[in-house]
């Protein structure tokens, strides 16, 4: 163990190595490491955020689903109620209609009956006159006794 010029040589080598390391080796490596650390931290934060978002979305979906179900059952109820109401209304209307038709029929029948009666009466009158004419042809002038016949017809 003796000191000699090697000391100077090694000191120079050491200085050069440290200077090189400081200028060309350390900065890019540490920059890469720190950048990656930042990236990983960002990624973790993003995934956490996404998880929270998902949870939120799931709970809102459940809410929406429940709302929709409620709405649907409400609509169905309404529809049922409406349907039964329509049925009731129609039945009611049908009844009224039927009664109207029946009443009309009766009225028509009545009118027809009256008309036929009138006709019959007129026919009977004509027949009666014709009979009377035949009976009285010889002695009674149709013109002179028509007022009597008219009165007879009115009485029928």
């Amino acid at each position: 163990m003796n000191f000699n010029a090697t000391l100077i040589g090694q000191l120079i080598a050491f200085t050069v190595f440290v200077a090189f390391c400081m200028k060309y080796v350390w900065p890019p490596i540490i920059a890469a490491i720190e950048e990656r650390q930042k990236k990983i931290a960002d990624g973790l934060a993003a995934s956490e955020r996404a998880e929270r978002d998902l949870e939120l979305a799931q709970s809102s979906v459940t809410d929406k689903l429940r709302e929709a179900k409620d709405e649907a059952s409400k609509i169905i109820d309404q529809a049922k109620r409406r349907a039964s109401q329509i049925i009731d209304d129609e039945t009611q209307r049908g009844h009224t209609e039927r009664e109207n038709i029946i009443a009309q029929g009766y009225a028509e029948i009545e009118a027809e009956k009256n008309r036929v009666k009138e006709d019959l009466r007129k026919q009977v009158a004509v027949l009666a006159i014709a009979g009377a004419q035949k009976i009285l042809a010889r002695e009674i002038d149709a013109q002179a006794h028509s007022d009597i016949v008219e009165k007879l017809v009115a009485e029928l």
Binding site: F3, T6, L7, I8, Q10, L11, F14, T15, V18
Partner: peptide, 9 residues
């Protein structure tokens, strides 16, 4: 010499 060079640095 090496170790002293380091420590002198």
């Amino acid at each position: 010499n090496t170790t002293f060079a380091l420590s002198i640095g």
